[in-house]
Design a protein around this nucleic acid. Structure first.
Lengths: 213, 213, 213, 213
DNA sequence: GATGAATGAGTTTTCATTCAT
DNA sequence: AATGAATGAAAACTCATTCAT
């Protein structure tokens, strides 16, 4: 049994790292890696600068932890949403794409592509991690779906090596937009409308039809 | 006879600004705004730090000048390559897209999207400039082409407000890739193959056909 | 037992600002505002440059704080020394003037008039502060004393608006001298002798006498 | 005969140094030595920075030249106005003092005391020059006048070593005021009124009278 | 003689990191 | 475990001075 003299509640130190990572992600998302000061992060996390060093040995390490940890839930979510796919492949693909705008709307984690793009040069191991864990797996996943469509005679035979980029590019653009130009041009890009159009074009583009162009 | 020792410096008034801007673009492209030191730029331009201040009042101003000036040739080139379009709209669009990989290959100017995305938050006026001068005009341009296709009965009626994003997204991805993840994954994304596939999908997606999906 | 090696630094939060201000006053007094480097001040205060910025946002702000804070004790002392005046007004005035050389001898605060004169142009708000808090009050104070003498029939009626300047001018000269030419001419101006003469002349000049000049 | 092809007039190079010195005095008077940039002086003199170095080897040397040259006319004027003194010594002294406000009004040279006080510490040789050429001679001059008064039985016997300071202090204050606090307090000190009062007090203070205080 | 582009040393300022408390 | 005062290295920026033109 725990000491009964303990205060009724207190901040559990086990949460600290996670709280810091979240605060850091938000800060990095807002100003970029170099322009955010550790003091910003500390204040946002409700601690002091010194405390950050109890959990992360340096600003760079904190950045890396932020990226890595923030990707985990995204990857999990993505893979789950596809695992047991049934029905026409077109529907499957459509669902995948349409689910994107919702995912983008909330979390600060959507800023990760922006951060990766901005800092890849300065953080090679982060770039490689992202290539291995996100890009490769994402490409494979989408290639698998499209291959399924081709094999079932639903889709035309296309370059499976690059189709993932074509599928993802507009979605990625949505995420990048939100954290850059979108801040100054509220109405210019409606994620939902863009995804609807993207699905429309993509499926028309992939689907086998009688009349060839 | 005068000493043949090289002079400490040489008058280059007219060329200097351009040389500095070029050196700065390369530096910013490599490391991002915050991580490039003025000394890097100066050395690359073959001058000293002090000289930068003869032409640009601050690092921020230099950055702005770099973006603005580097966009001019891009805009010009883009607009020229479309001016007098003849023939089927599909071909026109295909040509436009296919010309992109070549443009991306050489210049450091292809790093501008990356820089804009990374620093939009910190440089609002730059973001607005880019929105007005590049995004808006680009959207209008592509919308015009697609409208032409629709009016001539070649293309299906699609959302003209967002079609530009669908057309541009993969091309943009190519440019971003080159200056970020592409540095660590030479073969992962072949711009030409991607564009070929993109054209294929896009035209199949846009073109009017007998059989509806 | 703990290591006896001196710690790299020590917590001095409460004392630091005052220590810095004192070091700064001495430095500014010696070389003037522009010619003193923050490093000089820091070293004199036994800290590093960075520490200065924990307490003062800029060199200019430090300068302002120095002037303002250094004036407080001077003002207090001056006002106390006059509060409860009794006896002949001449004696009162004489005592006031005679007390000046002693006050000038010790503190670095006597350099403030020099600093104000040198930098008034560059620090308008400091000049106004000094006008309001020192000059105005000083003028009023002396005018009050002289008025008392006139009302009691001890002094001739003189211009009360300017008499303070006549009373103060030699005293001020003493302070300025000490921090400028006095450094190179030890014996040229003896503050005590000057004040003695000043009192003599001033009282002869003010006192009512039978024979008019 | 000079070439007839010469332009009808041109800037005579013999005037340049003097023009520069004047421009420099004005600039130094306005902002102090350290805060005025050579570019300010150059622009005010209608030349470029490089030209300054044709005439003065450094900023410090220019400053010294400014002080030295600006003192010459002041000294000459002062000495002339006293040379052949006749009549009562009181009148002589009164005239001397009353002439001061006029002298102060116009020239930028009245800023010299301020500059000397501000920079004496940083320019020892200038301080010594000023001590020898201005202070000493000024003291001697006034002491001579007062001695004359004493010898003629007009003045009381006073400390001749310090009387000059008592005579000069209010006048000096006038000059300092004009270039410092006076910029922010137009009406606070009227030089003429101050001098009138000063003469009044001083002569009452010096003059021999029947009734002792 | 005059210019002004270029220099480079010097100074302020910032901020990630350390460590006594 | 947490703090935050103190550090010190790095970087932007200034400006007196030089020198090719």
């Amino acid at each position: 049994m725990r000491s009964t003299a303990a205060p009724r509640w207190r901040r559990r130190k086990d949460d600290r790292p996670q709280e810091i990572v979240e605060a850091a992600l938000e800060s990095f998302a807002e100003r970029g890696f170099a322009a955010t000061r550790l003091d910003d992060i500390a204040r946002r996390a409700g601690v002091t600068r010194g405390t950050l060093y109890l959990y992360f040995p340096s600003k760079e390490d904190l950045f890396k932890a932020v990226i890595r940890q923030s990707l985990v839930p995204i990857l999990s979510r993505a893979e789950q949403s596809i695992a047991d796919a049934k029905g026409p492949t077109a529907e499957l693909l459509a669902r995948l794409i349409q689910s994107f705008p919702l995912a983008v709307k909330d979390g600060a984690a959507t800023a990760i592509p922006k951060l990766i793009i901005a800092e890849a040069q300065n953080f090679p191991d982060l770039a490689r991690f992202y290539l291995d864990e996100v890009v490769s797996r994402g490409r494979a996943l989408i290639a698998t779906i499209v291959r399924r469509g081709i094999e079932r005679g639903e889709f035309r035979a296309v370059d499976l090596d690059h189709v993932a980029y074509c599928v993802m590019a507009p979605l990625l653009l949505t995420a990048l937009w939100r954290h850059s130009l979108g801040l100054y041009d509220a109405g210019g890009l409606d994620p939902q409308a863009l995804c609807r159009l993207h699905v429309d074009l993509l499926l028309h583009g992939l689907t086998v039809r009688k009349g060839a162009p």
